Amino acid sequence: MANKGCTPKTMKALVAYSKDDYRLELEYPTPECGPDDIIIKTEACGICAGDLKCSHGAAMFWGDDVQPSWVKAPFIPGHEFFGHIVEMGENVEGFELGDRIIADQIVPCGKCKFCKDGHYWMCQPHNIFGFQSTNNGGMAEYVRFPKTSVISRVPEDMAIEDALLIEPYGCSKHAVDRGSITNEDVVVISGAGTLGLGMISYARMKNPKLLIALDMVDARLEKAKEFGADLVFNPGKCDLNKEIMALTDDYGCDVYIEATGHPSSVIQGLQIVRKLGRFVEFSVFGSATTVDWSIIGDRKELDVLGAHLSPYAYPFVIENIAKGTLKTNGVVSSIFEIEEWEKAFDYATGKYGDFKVAFKF
């Protein structure tokens, strides 16, 4: 028998029925608690660039002539969320009603090759909160955490604005770790949005020889300096290749981390990274990217590394946000009620100067 809290039968939720049909439902069924499940009352949920691209109908989510649909509508969006436990199944151990928790965005199956060898974030079925009806996300008053959810505790005294950054900063940590940064490296991070700022703050802890941030928006570059970048450049206002070569005796940077999702940033990175350098890609692209692969192979023999999600990152991120080692000041800049979802999605594009936009319940 489930350990009951005060869970109503219906809730407010933003529901995606198709790429062109997102609706605010005021009486959507509250998730039911199975014997191995946890139900949380959502406290807040951030809006990710992936949520925006999904709502705009990007093919990687909804499919096209080449790839099948990955989403399973109808679903409730949102994977950057946390809350308090209000109900638990009888088989759940180690938690109490009222605990403040967060889960990795992926819900691993626990049975596939990748789950069994510890690479749970590459789970073959690849079910993620906020994109499938079986794993609804946090843009709703209540969310169900299935048995295999990877759960971490959130300190009660952590501000909402800080806790909202656990998921994106977890992704930032994984991307930086993929770059294997040392204190002898010149590191370039392209993009100073929420993910880029998390990367800059964490990369600063690696004590690289030089940490450089790039962005087309000067206000973001100012925040990048605040978060630990030694130098910042706006590629739209300078000859970036000339600047980087002047700083590296014409060799190029050792590590380039791409966090914009824009094709031009990929091409730029291949130009300024040195021979035998490391190129890390962490982005969701809205359009195809074409590069000269002879640069990667014949000319530079690069290590090209992908980065996906935030495996094993939450405990470190939570601890260092709490300590202030990972900087968060001013990143979450606008918080809306779910009734204002269209305005919130508009603000989340960054057109008004926001880094991270969220809902509060």
Results as ranks from 00 to 15, higher is better:
V154T: 07
A192E: 04
V255K: 13
G196Q: 12
D239G: 02
S265W: 00
I212P: 12
D185C: 08
V255F: 05
L214H: 06
R204M: 14
D239I: 02
D250N: 15
L276H: 12
L240G: 08
G198S: 13
L210S: 14
V188Y: 03
E161R: 11
K223C: 05
Y169T: 09
E222V: 10
D162N: 13
F233W: 07
V266L: 06
V187H: 10
E258G: 02
P155A: 11
E258C: 00
T260P: 14
P263N: 03
N183E: 15
M199E: 10
S287W: 03
D218I: 02
T182P: 07
K225M: 05
T248D: 10
N241F: 05
T290L: 11
V154S: 07
M205A: 13
G228M: 06
I244L: 02
I257K: 05
Y202F: 15
V273H: 00
I189F: 04
L164D: 15
T182M: 14
T194F: 11
T260L: 13
D254G: 11
E226M: 14
S172C: 14
K275T: 05
M216G: 00
A259P: 12
H174T: 12
V273M: 07
G261T: 03
K173C: 13
E281S: 07
E222R: 01
L240H: 09
L270Q: 01
S190P: 07
E222W: 00
E258H: 04
G193L: 04
L195E: 08
T289H: 04
E222D: 11
M199V: 09
Y256K: 12
Y169R: 13
A288L: 03
S283N: 10
I181P: 04
F227W: 01
K223F: 05
P263F: 01
T289I: 05
V273W: 00
A203L: 00
L214N: 03
G236M: 12
S283I: 00
Q268C: 10
K242P: 09
S190R: 08
A246W: 09
T248H: 08
L197V: 07
A175V: 12
D230G: 07
I181G: 04
L195S: 08
F279M: 14
G170H: 13
K237T: 01
K173H: 12
I267L: 12
L211T: 04
L214K: 01
G277C: 13
S287E: 15
M216N: 00
K209T: 05
R178K: 15
E258V: 02
I267K: 15
V187I: 10
I272A: 06
E156V: 06
P168D: 13
I212G: 09
I257H: 06
V186L: 06
C253K: 09
E258K: 04
Q271A: 13
T182Q: 14
E258Q: 08
I181A: 06
L221S: 13
T260Y: 08
L211S: 06
K173L: 15
F285K: 04
